[in-house]
Each structure stands twice: as C-alpha cells, then as structure tokens.
Design a protein around this nucleic acid. Structure first.
Lengths: 199, 199
DNA sequence: ACTTTCACTTGTCAACCGAATAAAATTCCC
DNA sequence: GGGAATTTTATTCGGTTGACAAGTGAAAGT
C-alpha cells in the first residue's frame, strides 16, 4: 500500500464495497453518494473522481457482486464417480452459502427487479441472463427432466428459497430467534433446500 | 357516496391503496407523501389530515396488506374425505395466487426486513408473527413430519419460492419472456411449488 | 333556517439533502 | 525539485421533504 496505484485501488475498493451495501439496502435513489462516502470512510469528492457519476458507481457495484457470485459458483472438478444428483445438491448448497455470505445480491435484484427502468434492463442483459443460461444448462445436465418449460419457475423458486432468509436477516432473527449468519444455520438451510429441489 | 362519511372513507381508501404500492416499491423513505397523494389522485394535505403522519399512514398500509392476506388464506371448509397432503398443496396454491395478485406484500417485507429498525420490529410483532404461528400449526397438521426445528427454513424457503417471481415481475418478463401476471403462468407456478414442497 | 362540523384546498415554511464541480492541498514518482 | 495523480475542502444550484395554518364549501344537526 505504498505505491500510488495500490493506494488508489484500495480507495476504489472501499468505495465499491460501501456502494454494494448501500445500494442493496437503500436502493439506487435512497443511497446517497454522501452516505456511501461516509460508509467507505473516504471523501465524497473521491466518488466523482474515481467513477465520474453515481450511475457508473452503481454499475461497478453490480459488477463486483456478480464477480463474487461467479467465483463462488465456479464449477468444481467433476468427480466422475459421484452421483449427478448429489452434484446438483452440492451446487445448491454452494449457492446457499453464497447467499448467506452475500445477501446483497438478492436485495439488489429485488430492489431493481421491481421496476422496469433502464438500470434493470442493463442489469438483466449484462449480468443476470448469462447466469440464468448457465443455470438452465446445469439443470438440464443434472436432472434431465422433460419439464423444460418449467425452467423459469424452477429458477425463481430456487433463488427465492435459497436467499430470502438471509436477505431479511434482521427480520428472521426477531421472528424466529434464529441467527441466519451462524454457520450451523446456513448449513441446515443449505441441506434443506438441496433436498427440497433434488429429493 | 353522497354522505360525508362515505366520501371520507373512499378518500382514506384511495390513499392507503396508493401508499401500499408506493411503500412497497420505493420503501418508506423513498415514497414521499406527495408521490402517494399524486398516485391516489388527492391532495397532499389530506394525508396529514387523515393519518396525522407518514408513519401512521405506513402502518395503515401494512394493515391493509395483511388484511387481504388473511382474507385470501382463510381456511377452507375442510372436506374430511380429501387427502391432507392435497389440502396442503391447495393451501400453497392459494398462497401463490395471492402473491401473484399482491406482490406488494413480499416487496414490503423485503424492504423492511433488511433493517432492524423500529418499523420492522413493529411489523414483525404485530403482523408477521401471528401469520408465522399459523403457518407452523398448519405445517404440523398437514405434514406431521418430525423435523420440527426445520420450521424457519421451511417458512422462508416457501415464502421465497412462492413470491419472488411475482415480486420482480418486470425483471422476470425481460429475463424469461414470461409474463408472471398471466393466469396460466400463475397456475403453473402454483402447481410447481405445491408439488415441490408436498411431493 | 341557521349554525356547527368536517372533509378538503391552498399556500407556505424551514430544513435538509441531491450530485457534480472547482480549486486548493497533499502525496508519490521521476 | 518539477509534474502528475490522488485527495481534500468548499461551494453551487436546485430540488424535495413532512408538516402545518388558514381558508372554503358543503353536508349534518338542531
């Protein structure tokens, strides 16, 4: 962190991290650049300097979220011996672990998916569709069920079942007394959802 | 609609209806009283007049959403001949139909559930917990599975699987080409989720 | 008929926050 | 030490916020 470029990249990183949290919980309009700067512990002017505009910062935040999603779900070295259904279950478990560690993705997708504006369209076309196509392929391989037209239903049912508990973590805590961040709770949810979709 | 009270109640109704839509899509802070008044086609001053404050209007909006949920899920006259598992499936189908007709509930719950503030606590204690307790009872009756500790997982998995597709309707449209509001699509989702949770 | 009540309208206020920019200060690199 | 990249400080101009006070008109009560 001595060099200037490293310092600069660290600053950008702090801003994007704060932006991810702020945009996902407060929405695009609700999250002000001042708020983001405060959370990042940096100066508000730096946001314009590094990202030119709030919208471009938002895109950088979305990029970061999907980058960590790709990292988390990168295909494992397929052990040919194991049951394809068990592989599918493990994929779902990994998705649950990601949703628990990064509730921001679901929050942001719901926040943006409610409206049909330009940002949502960009988000779908740029990041969500590739992910969805990958999901369809994996579903076809692992389960090989003939209900092809059910793909949208399976996709949204899975995403919702996997993520909701972690997206509304404070609510879940108060309602059930369960802390969704505890590793044991995450694993229980992972196993529950995995067996639900791949009995 | 000649009498003064009828007129007044109609106005209150229009305001609350607009508030439900606005709060669920824009959040509490994002929805301004002016915006709500515009959507309701009434004067902004009337909001203060009828509800005293924005917060009390928000509570009225929440009350209205949960009232329609209770109406939609009121227990059917139990036909003793039918399979309890099929009854459970039908309950889930009715929940799906409600989520399709009223995506506002899920949107608002996610919007508020993300934070742990006073509004969320009031919402959980006043409306969500009674609903959750009812859900647990019905689950115990219909399925009588020994996995009691899985209730929170089942609850959130079900709620997410049921509702997400309709909560992000514009996104779903663009991503999949499917219109979640079409009756056929709703029924397909209802059947998919019902069979998923009660095979 | 006449007064009171009440839903409603209009106008306003005082505060606050919005993103973006410009200029000044600091730091690193050569 | 000169110059460039990064960061800070200060400001601009604008718009929006929830709430309220005073005024209007029509229905309700008597």
């Amino acid at each position: 962190m001595v060099s200037r470029v490293e310092q600069s990249e660290e600053t950008r990183g702090k801003i994007v991290a704060a932006a991810v949290a702020a945009f996902s919980t407060l929405g695009f309009h609700g999250a002000s650049t001042r708020e983001i700067a405060a959370r990042a512990g940096i100066n508000q002017g730096l946001i314009t300097y590094h990202f030119r505009s709030k919208e471009l910062l938002w895109r950088a935040a979305v990029e970061k979220i999907f980058a960590s999603l790709r990292t988390a779900l990168v295909p494992l070295p397929t052990s040919p011996a194991s049951d394809p259904r068990e592989q599918a279950r493990e994929s779902i478990r990994r998705y649950v672990r990601f949703a628990a560690a990064h509730p921001e993705l679901f929050r942001l997708m719901v926040e943006e998916g409610k409206s049909g504006d330009r940002r949502m369209q960009w988000l779908v076309d740029t990041y969500l569709r590739p992910f969805y196509e990958g999901f369809k392929e994996q579903l076809a391989e692992s389960l090989s069920e003939p209900e092809q037209s059910l793909e949208p239903h399976a996709f949204y049912a899975l995403a919702g079942a996997v993520s909701l508990m972690f997206a509304v973590e404070p609510e879940c805590r108060r309602l059930t007394g369960l802390n969704p961040k505890r590793k044991q709770v995450v694993e229980q949810h992972a196993d529950y959802v995995a067996r639900l979709f791949v009995p």
